[in-house]
Design a protein around this nucleic acid. Structure first.
Lengths: 232, 232
DNA sequence: ACCTGAACACCGTTCAAGT
DNA sequence: ACCTGAACACCGTTCAAGT
């Protein structure tokens, strides 16, 4: 109840002068590569040490805990999210570009889906995105807490929509026999007419395209819904 | 690429006749209790064994892997989600009750936030909810893939909104000095006028109430947005 | 200032052996 | 049919010791 709030971003990094040793940037870069290649479960201090050709425990000189390292890597994902200048573009345009950009960043770094919404996002890049998003909704005409509510609604949608996409890509499409997965689904749907109909009438499109369509459908809905709030 | 798709729900449980030993239900019940009390990280086969007063490895007689156990526990969360009969209520009412009910189930079992959208939801209770949700959106007037898109949009919102709520409750409010957390946030917001304004004008309400308001704001927006799709 | 290896207290899972 | 303990290959982290 009274433990101190703590995050990489609230503590000073240990080494002020950059000596001859490694650097935080170097370590974070290697961590992101490992995460991209092997996922969240694939990152261990021992493996990361090996990749950096050092002892596993050397990393603890630069970073207090593995969680700190994850917070650092996490903010790199936010760095890839582009948000148009809210003072230059219409709010729907800003929100739409932000949404697609965030989805792409997540798809590129699947492990981020396990972190978004769970880790404090206090890194400079995450903060930068929040700042622009808030300004966007203020300029759109929202006031008071509605500014934050609108932002929370948008990010909830993006995050909530993209996470299952990633789960599907990294499990079913990634490693499993798709036909067998289909069969399992059909079996689970037995006795449920709606689900059987859904499976039966599923269009023969590229599933990636279908997912993009679903995302766009949802995004337009969310933006329309927010616009509706503005009218009343 | 060709590994067999696999899930607890696609394999036969080992023991057909219920002998004198433990049962799956008993084990899953104990697992849920442990998860509720200690979170996802608090569940280990050894601890669960101790709770059941048996060797840790005895559990493997009833359950193939820990992941299987999690799938089983996961479906118990879906069991707590109530969905009104789509043939009796207006679709907005069904969606709204479903949304609030799912949020409550997640808040009650915080560990579920780490599973939703990541684990295949093929258990009978999860399937039951999907079935009703699909029927709801069909009766609302959606057709073809739009039925699924509408459902995906709604669940993305619920899941995406509730996950950060849980993270906040279990970390900042749960274990940390709130004032210090506030200070950390203010520091991170330095130089960002929008965020500083947000912190400064934050109403003095109970944060739980604020979160419920944010959820309702977003839900109404999503439903309005979906209704808009119907009109065109 | 930086790096090391040994050690501690954990994991999930396998398997031969028991009853 | 069910349960056990030992063992294997891992974890994150601490710490005394090195350079």
């Amino acid at each position: 109840m009274s433990r101190q709030f703590t995050s990489v971003w609230t503590r000073e990094p240990r080494s002020r002068p950059a000596g001859p040793g490694r650097s935080r940037e170097e370590i974070v870069k290697a961590a992101v590569e490992l995460l991209d290649a092997e996922g969240l479960g694939g990152l261990s201090m021992r493996k990361l040490g090996a990749k950096l050709m050092s002892g596993a425990t050397s990393i603890y000189w630069y970073v207090a805990t593995k969680d700190d390292l994850l917070e650092l890597a996490y903010d790199e994902v936010w760095a890839e999210i582009s948000v148009p200048d809210p003072d230059e573009a219409h709010w729907r345009e800003v929100a739409s570009v932000l949404a697609h950009s965030m989805r792409q960043a997540m798809l590129k770094h699947p492990w981020s889906a396990d972190l978004i919404g769970r880790l404090p996002a206090l890194g400079p890049h995450a903060i930068g995105v929040s700042e622009r998003m808030r300004r966007t909704f203020r300029l759109a005409g929202f006031t008071g807490t509605d500014i934050d509510f609108a932002g929370a609604t948008l990010t909830a949608f993006i995050f909530g929509m993209t996470t299952p996409e990633i789960a599907w890509e990294t499990t079913v499409e990634g490693v499993w026999d798709t036909a067998a997965a289909q069969a399992a689904l059909t079996k689970a749907a037995a006795g449920h007419p709606e689900l059987l109909d859904a499976i039966g009438t599923m269009p023969d499109e590229d599933p990636r395209v279908m997912r993009a369509m679903a995302f766009d459908f949802g995004l337009v809905s969310v933006l329309d819904g927010l616009e509706r709030r503005l009218a009343t």
